[in-house]
């Protein structure tokens, strides 16, 4: 138990360090040197100057290292669970779920960085991963330990249903982070502040498109997660749908993003509106994930 808790702790500090480095990177890149269209990899390594390149590289390395430690923490926790009660899913309570969500967010971010070569996003997305990890470590100790599963949860379904659903939450978290980034950048641009800190961010269109992509990853995953939940419920509770608050809220979240996905087909639903909507959606995800457990009663109130 202590071994995994130590690793979770270490993950927290590493993500904090990575976040600091990304912020430092954005600050170091401030000088208005951006000739290249941001987001276009052919334009060279973002036209950075001075310390920025080094800080950026260190930030990436620290992030990856943090992610590896996060992976190890989850694996260790899985091993401890196996020793303790014979099931290993390292996302069996609120704490582990949060740690898993931050793992997925950071993985998503690292993939995004490698694919699009935009480091400035790290200041937001790694930030959200860090907050997820931080919120987990703020939970009381009794929530952090690997108590054996109650009979209703003791099933193979927990491996797939929970991980799929949490991964979709991570994708929505990324979209939310990108939404915030979009609004900040847009505000800076409207004030004519083109050379300030925010100039280091990729252009608005890129942020918008990436946010949309994140939602397009989360949306099918959430659908899959809900359906896996229904299949599980059909085995455990005797009915695939019982309008339990958690079930209903995950459906609500899905409907909210469903409206978004359809809205994107129309003109005028990109950019600012989409960014605000993505943030709103993410708030709903947070409520579905945390609020429902603590505020509403129901079959999912295990944490």
């Amino acid at each position: 138990m202590l071994r995994s808790l130590f690793l979770f702790d270490m993950t927290f500090w590493l993500y904090l360090a990575a976040l600091g480095l990304y912020v430092g990177y954005v600050l170091a890149r401030r000088p208005g040197l951006q000739f290249a269209l941001a987001g276009l990899p052919t334009a060279g390594p973002e036209g950075e100057s001075g310390w920025a390149t080094q800080i950026g590289q260190v930030a990436t390395i620290v992030t990856i290292f943090g992610w590896v430690v996060n992976t190890l923490a989850l694996l260790t926790r899985a091993y401890e669970r196996l020793q303790l009660s014979g099931t290993f899913a390292p996302w069996s309570n609120q704490f582990e779920a949060m740690a898993y969500v931050s793992w997925a967010i950071i993985l998503g971010y690292v993939l995004l960085e490698f694919r699009y070569r935009i480091k400035a996003i790290g200041a937001f997305v790694v930030g959200i991963g860090f907050i997820a990890m931080g919120a987990a470590s703020l939970l009381p100790y009794r929530y952090q330990t690997a108590e054996p599963l109650v009979p209703a949860l003791n099933s193979y379904w927990i491996y797939i249903h929970v991980s799929v659903t949490l991964t979709s939450y991570a994708a929505f978290a990324m979209a939310g982070g990108l939404g915030i980034m979009y609004l900040l950048k847009e505000r800076a641009e409207q004030r004519g502040n083109r050379s300030g800190v925010l100039a280091a961010f990729p252009d608005l269109e890129t942020i918008d498109e990436l946010g949309y992509k994140a939602i397009m990853v989360g949306f099918p995953l959430l659908a899959f997660g809900i359906i896996l939940g229904a299949m599980w419920a059909n085995y455990a509770w005797g009915g695939y749908w019982s309008w339990d608050p958690k079930e209903t809220w995950s459906l609500i979240v899905w409907l909210i993003y469903g409206a978004y996905v359809h809205a994107r087909m129309n003109r005028g639903w990109e950019g600012r509106r989409a960014a605000i909507y993505a943030i709103f959606g993410f708030l709903m995800v947070i409520f579905c994930f945390w609020g429902v457990n603590f505020l509403l009663s129901g079959l999912h109130a295990y944490a």
Partner: peptide, 24 residues
Amino acid sequence: SIKLAMFLFIVLAMTATIGTVIQQ
């Protein structure tokens, strides 16, 4: 229309919350 779809998604989402707040 997509507009009707969006409307239904949002209205369903809003009305579905009722049953999670008021015990059924």
